[in-house]
Structure formats: C-alpha cells, structure tokens
Amino acid sequence: MMHRAHTFFLCVVLSLGAWTSAAEADGGAVVWTGERLGAAAAILVSPASPRVGTIDVAWIGDPRAAMQVVATHESGVRITAVCLASDAAKETHAQLLLSTAGAWRIEIQPNAAVNAAPVSVELVVDEAMPNWSSFALYLFAWVPLAAIGGFAAARRMRGLRVG
C-alpha cells in the first residue's frame, strides 16, 4: 500500500515537472528586450546584480557569429569582447572583465554586415563583494554565544551535581 502510494505521488510530481521547459541558461537578468533582424531578441546579464569582476552578457535571438560587445565605463574606459556560441539554442554570449564600479554602457551590434541598429543598455556595476573577513563580526557571532552557552551549561551541570 505504502509502496504504491509513494510511486503514485512521485509519478504525479515528476510528470508535472516534465511539462515545464528545461531552461538551460538558468539565471541572469533581462536588461533589454525588443526586435532585431526580424525576430524577438533579448540581452541577459549574469549575475543578476553585477559586481566588479567577470560578467556574462548573453544575446538571445537570431544568432550571429562574431558579434562584438563593447562596454564603456562613465570614465571612458572601454572593453570589448566577442560573442561565442552557447549550449542553449538561440544564444550567444561573451564574458567581460569589468574592473571598475559605476555606470557602464553595454553595446551590441547584432549584425554589422546588414548594418542592423546596435543595441545599447546601461548597467550599474557594484563594488566587488567585500572579503569574508570584513563580515567576520556577523559570521562568527555564534562563537561568543556558544561560549556563553557553554559556560552557563557547565555552571548549571556543576549545580545539578552538587544538588
């Protein structure tokens, strides 16, 4: 009875799951949507809250090889990268190493050959994640708590033994 119930519920849940789309390009934030080259297109940036370091810029739409991504910082610093094919269908992506926090303009030319209108989006990049040691106060807040608890426990047990 139990075995059959397990199987039944597992089948129900798994069959519901099977209806869903298996999104290969999991994660990221959609920063632009629109139409280019006669098809719907979008730009995804990963991680969703970009910080100083490597960010992934993905173009979803009609794929074109050798698309160039240009990132320009508000101070004038310019970084370029070439898009590579992705495992996911209709996706090409490039990785950019952004070294400075602040406002960046990301520009993608979907197809220079046919002179398609370039896509340009603004991206605010945060400072790099602080080192874990700068959060040590919060990270190890349990140490004094455990010490106090341990001391109280030792005292209590001594009291119990004496009693």
Binding site: A25, D26, G27, G28, V30, L44, S46, P47
Partner: peptide, 9 residues
C-alpha cells in the same frame, strides 16, 4: 547569486 525566475524569455 543567479536569480531564478528572471529568465523564461
């Protein structure tokens, strides 16, 4: 963090 639910385009 790779935020879920932000894809699906």
């Amino acid at each position: 963090m790779e935020m879920r639910g932000t894809f699906g385009f």
